[in-house]
Nucleic acid binder design. Structure first.
Lengths: 219, 219
DNA sequence: TCTCCTATGATTAGCGA
DNA sequence: TTCGCTAATCATAGGAG
């Protein structure tokens, strides 16, 4: 029975402190796991207890390694961010366009959104650093892609909305051999062309969610 | 009023997820602070929020830098070293990636089915019913995709290098115009992804004392 | 959106075995 | 030391403004 409200200070009693540490470490790992699940945060926790030679690693050792390796790449991302800050308008523009895409796609239904994200934008790691000219190129590229996306979305919206009965009849009457395949192929082609360069991906990732990095180090 | 017991799964609603993330991030920082005070843990937390360009750093950027610098001289971890260097690591990773591929492919299969139904069947007539041949078509398509995935997994096993799951998924999901080039690229990406593990090794060299380290990294 | 609120579920301090 | 227990404190989901 928690008789006292914990006073927030160093627990001098050794046993008590260790007990508290164990309990709270367990609690934090649980919290981390929950956060990871609930918010889609890819995370890891490495916990060395007092005197323990083996750390408690969550969710697993190699996942931890992966997360840490990505942490290592952070400086690169920071560099890019810095570059983007210098070209602030570009970054803003990208973010805005990205938001537009998401909005429109959501309006148009989860189907296209999921497909585009999965085939074109879903997370991949970044392996390069963008040069100034590459960034300029990117802006132009994105601009063009956005037009295509809008056209495509419009097209999909038109074709997805239930057509008038006459149109349905007509379409059914002149059914091509494999209408689904054609439709799918066209969409795939559009998607394919929409795939960004790998080094661009951090830009897209940035607007798509949160990430969290934490380090604890016992004295 | 927390009416429901939280169901431990990804929150699909965007706003709700972000709200939850904010609350829980705050909670975790508080927990970290308490743990630090109560148990004398020298710790830091770096938290990147959704769309925030600057992370929330606790207790301060300076202290975080100190902790991170100590992270570079981390204690022993023979087991992890082994896991990272040797077959165990690869095999674990292989298993996990295979599982991911299976999962992804299942999702893709559903997606494609939905797409086909929508564009090929449902879109044509609100009250239409899929013909026998159309359904057979869908079944065949899914079957084919699964074969591709199996082949891909086999290929991966033979080369014993793991490309990122996204690349696998992409390759399996859409026939690309230049498969060989893509293959090569995927392998390079895989190599790249596996290389950085090595920089971790120095972190697991000898040292003493209890410590706690945690990292969270959004995809 | 954001903040504030509070009922409810979750965490945990202190204790005894 | 390490369990398990239970009351008490704490965190937070969901709703209201």
């Amino acid at each position: 029975m928690s008789r006292k409200k914990v006073k927030l200070q160093w627990i001098s009693n050794d046993a008590a402190r260790r007990a508290t540490f164990k309990k709270r470490r367990k609690g934090m790992i649980k919290k981390a796991a929950e956060l990871s699940t609930l918010c889609g945060v890819n995370a890891c926790l490495i916990v060395y207890g007092d005197g323990e030679q083996q750390p408690e690693i969550w969710p697993s050792a190699h996942d931890a390694a992966i997360v840490l390796s990505r942490l290592k790449r952070l400086p690169e991302m920071e560099q890019i961010k810095q570059m983007m800050n210098q070209e602030g308008f570009m970054r803003q523009r990208l973010a805005k366009l990205q938001e537009q895409v998401r909005k429109q796609e959501r309006e148009n239904g989860e189907l296209e959104t999921t497909l585009l994200l999965r085939h074109g934008l879903a997370g991949r790691s970044m392996h390069g650093v963008a040069s100034r000219s590459q960034l300029a190129n990117l802006a132009w590229l994105i601009d063009r892609k956005m037009c295509e996306v809008r056209r495509r979305i419009e097209s999909l919206r038109r074709s997805s909305v239930m057509p008038p009965p006459e149109a349905v009849k007509k379409e059914a009457a002149s059914a091509s051999p494999a209408p689904e395949a054609k439709e799918k192929k066209a969409l795939e082609a559009a998607t394919e062309e929409l795939q960004p360069q790998e080094w661009l991906l951090p830009f897209f990732e940035h607007g798509n969610g949160a990430w969290l990095d934490a380090c604890f180090l016992k004295n």
